[in-house]
Design a protein around this nucleic acid. Structure first.
Length: 442
DNA sequence: CAGATGATTGTTGCA
DNA sequence: TGCAACAATCATCTG
């Protein structure tokens, strides 16, 4: 796998995401490095380290050289040896349209920042690779160089690469240095037992994004470790437009509001419980030291919203599916968008088995979310479902995140995928029976 | 503002 | 069988 980062100067202006000569070497990690390069280029601050750079094995080019054969330099699309298109100017335009407030074609924002479609390309190509070579094994064990290659796949611990990484980090002033370097013996943290009745803390925007995204990444990188996925997701998060982030943050804030309400109720119940059963108060106080005290944050500081603030976990993946799905279709309804997309699949998109897996994963997560919520906490389930429903009709801002991927999901799966709009009775019932016993699907 | 904490998922090992 | 720990990363909280 060639996750080599070519300095901008080697490819052109800044786009700086040089894709490997061997498309089979393409992976989401390319994406990661594309963003790395972006950050290294200092587009909007240097953030990420290039640790992966040194830890990931490389897929050697045929001649052992690491020459960029594909990529994007901000104006031009690079092709790989197979003339496989990774990105087209039109797509760039779409990306610009996708997030016009952030994208500036003249400023060479990162590939993925322009459109997650790139990621889809990466993932799609990656899926082909991963069907043959496990990313994880390559990552963790260091894929042995093919015979004859000039060991362009150095050991992850290659000192040369470490040196390079170091120097790169130094020159770029990475905010996030190698975790190995910073790794200090972690104190064994004990997870405190939580009261099952205690309302679950709302997940952060990033966690939501992670939840949504990891399935897709995993789908295409079945062997990707959690660390790999984390890095990719983090990179994607970085690339996420402010609008999309705001979408997630809105959800988070809404969830937080709900959480605070629930927490207040929970604490109130604890208080009354303690009043009735002082014996329990001791343990309760230890686990809830502040339950007698007013919360630091005003419980109702957030202005109330008409519907369930926590749109329901189910509402997250779906928007993301949509957000991954394609250029924004302003003024189109969800159904219109989806049906329209399934009618005209992009020719360049490659369907790969993992993609199906990915879709099913993703859709599983869609329907799974309420289940999980039901299991873990006593949040208003109805509002979750309502949130899901409402999300079907009025997508929250967050779902604009990666519209390209969504459309490609839809397109790629075509009729095999469970349609969103009602033709999925069979799938739905199957899934429903399997996953939720028919309690939640409808 | 720096550091701690907890969240994300999947795997592994132990009680 | 169930639960804790762990991985990388980020957001949030806390002192």
């Amino acid at each position: 796998m060639d996750v080599r980062f070519y300095p901008p100067s080697s490819v052109g202006t800044v786009g700086s995401c040089s894709l490997p000569a061997d498309p089979s070497c393409l992976s989401s990690l390319d994406y990661y490095h594309c963003n790395k390069s972006r950050h290294s280029a200092g587009e909007h601050g240097v953030r990420r380290g290039v640790r992966l750079f040194s830890t990931l094995p490389m897929c050697p080019n045929p001649d052992g050289k690491r020459l960029p054969s594909a990529g994007f330099d901000g104006d031009n699309m690079y092709m790989n040896e197979n003339n496989q298109e990774f990105i087209s100017p039109n797509q760039i335009q779409e990306m610009a349209h996708l997030d016009g407030s952030h994208y500036d074609a003249a400023h060479h924002s990162p590939l993925i920042n322009r459109s997650p479609r790139i990621l889809t390309h990466h993932i799609s190509a990656l899926s082909q690779m991963n069907s043959q070579v496990g990313l994880r094994s390559a990552l963790t064990h260091g894929s042995p160089s093919p015979p004859g290659s000039k060991s362009a796949t150095p050991s992850p611990s290659s000192s040369a690469q470490e040196e390079e990484t170091d120097s790169h980090s130094k020159t770029t002033g990475e905010k996030r240095p190698s975790s190995e370097m910073l790794k200090k013996p972690k104190p064994q943290k004990k997870k405190k037992k939580k009261d099952p009745n205690e309302p679950q803390k709302p997940v952060s925007a990033y966690a939501l994004f992670f939840r949504d995204t990891q399935a897709a990444i995993k789908g295409q990188n079945p062997n990707a470790t959690f660390g790999d996925v984390s890095k990719i997701v983090a990179s994607m998060w970085d690339s996420l437009g402010e609008e999309q982030k705001q979408g997630y943050k809105k959800k988070t804030e809404a969830a937080k509001k709900e959480y605070l309400k629930a927490l207040a109720a929970y604490r109130a119940s604890l208080v009354s419980k303690n009043y009735n059963d002082p014996a329990e108060s001791k343990s309760a106080q230890t686990s809830q030291p502040s339950h007698m005290m007013p919360p630091k944050q005003p419980l109702y500081s957030v202005p109330p919203q008409p519907s369930s603030p926590y749109l329901g976990p189910g509402s997250f993946p779906l928007p993301d599916l949509q957000s991954y799905g394609g250029p924004p279709h302003h003024g189109l309804s969800q159904t219109q968008i989806l049906s329209g997309m399934s009618a005209s699949p992009p020719s360049s998109f490659q369907i790969s088995p993992p993609l199906h897996q990915q879709l099913s994963l993703h859709q599983s997560s869609i329907l799974n979310q309420p289940i999980r919520m039901q299991q873990v906490q006593s949040q208003p389930i109805i509002s979750h479902q309502m949130g899901l429903q409402s999300s079907l009709h009025s997508p929250p801002p967050g779902q604009q995140g990666f519209p390209h991927i969504q459309s490609e999901y839809q397109n790629s799966v075509g009729s095999q995928s469970p349609p969103v709009g009602g033709q999925n009775a069979e799938w739905d019932s199957e899934y429903c029976n399997r996953e939720c016993g028919g309690n939640l699907c409808r």
